[in-house]
Design a protein around this nucleic acid. Sequence first.
DNA 1: CGCTGGATTGACTCGGATCAAGTCGAGTGG
DNA 2: CCACTCGACTTGATCCGAGTCAATCCAGCG
Lengths: 240, 240
Amino acid sequence: MANRFVDKLRGYGQLSPDVVDALAQATSRPRKFAAKHDLIREGDRPGPVFVMLEGWAYRYKILPSGTRQVLAYLMPGDCCDLNIGLLAEMDHSIQTITPALVAMVGRGEMDALMDGHRGIAKAMYMAQLVDESIMRAWITSMGRRASIERVAHLMCELYLRARNIGIASEEAFALPLSQLLLADSLGMTAVHLNRVLKELRVAGAMTLARGSLVITNPNKLIQIAGFDENYLHRRLRDAA
Amino acid sequence: MANRFVDKLRGYGQLSPDVVDALAQATSRPRKFAAKHDLIREGDRPGPVFVMLEGWAYRYKILPSGTRQVLAYLMPGDCCDLNIGLLAEMDHSIQTITPALVAMVGRGEMDALMDGHRGIAKAMYMAQLVDESIMRAWITSMGRRASIERVAHLMCELYLRARNIGIASEEAFALPLSQLLLADSLGMTAVHLNRVLKELRVAGAMTLARGSLVITNPNKLIQIAGFDENYLHRRLRDAA
DNA sequence: CGCTGGATTGACTCGGATCAAGTCGAGTGG
DNA sequence: CCACTCGACTTGATCCGAGTCAATCCAGCG
């Protein structure tokens, strides 16, 4: 079975065969979770590092008023913070969206992997930098992009990330996110998101239906989003 | 002279005297910059790690339309990403707000510090986790908080951070941020921010004037913001 | 075959943007 | 020492994007 975690880290630099083995070994006993299951909740004391092998999850916060804000999506290959174990308690929750296979890597084991293989450490740090960069892009979207641009931008991001781990074809991929979830990601209501999706569909840019995103006109979508993929840092730095 | 960087890291755990010395040594040759000076720009190739010793700076992005989004504030003691050197190019810019003293710590030197002193590595990782947590709080604010809550929340955050490094008194501190800058942080216009500040002033919660924030009624401000300081992770994890 | 949770559409309202004038205060040069 | 200037702050009037409320609609499924 494909190990998306290994695939993703490979994207950040060459990994030698023994490194690949070590990673595969560390994630060889994943646990299975149902959809909509909290992997960890705000206030919990963090334990091992989560690594998504199959399925999607999302980070979120619930405000006192009961509203939810989605903070990030975890797709296969993604993992939560490396140093999560340093914290006394979580500042947000993580929940599965679909049924998922999740490897739990103990703190010691993760440290050993990173100490033992410089390549792993570098790839993990890169992944972390990209996650931060994505958060900055989200802040930028929420603060300064119109709603249709925001939606288009998120779709571009998710498409590229899916593409990078090989779960997207040329123009479509499985996107298991409800409109309510997307709305809670983008700081808008589900009603308004629905109208924006229609607008994008009518414009011939993309169609999101029955769990699948079809990008009808990539250039148009990119142009609406004002998308610049630079922030995903796929271009590697030569020599280190 | 006080070294805010050391002070800040101390807040994340005991540091032995030799560790403090090593940190002070590494930041002993800071450079002076004028206000409104870009330390690094989007697209630049990253170099050394910046450590703010005196003065304020902010991270930002400029969109094609020319609008700006502020992504984070750096106050004395804060530094940019540890692993910034892994990136081929910056995905955002960093600019001083006030005249500033900035130490530039080379990648090798920083690695040596962290390898040599477990306490430094832990404190630096904690600082990084807190920075991420703050970004999540910003996303939450922009997505799901009303404008007055957003403003109040940011003020609570900045006050606590200032307090943690000892530059805030019981109820006031120097906040050198223009209304335009704040508006660009919070996803609103300067005009509207001005009205919200007035609202907070009239409500007796806080007054921002002439570069100084006075918190008239802390409880009211906290209540308006729906502020929970948990996300700043000041409570330390017992044992590691 | 009816139930249920998501998706869709319409009517109405409102928070915050936009546009347009001022006002205030700290420098600066005569 | 005062007039001028420039940037930052205030305030008012108007408009519109997006929220709210309220019905459906529809697909999957027990």
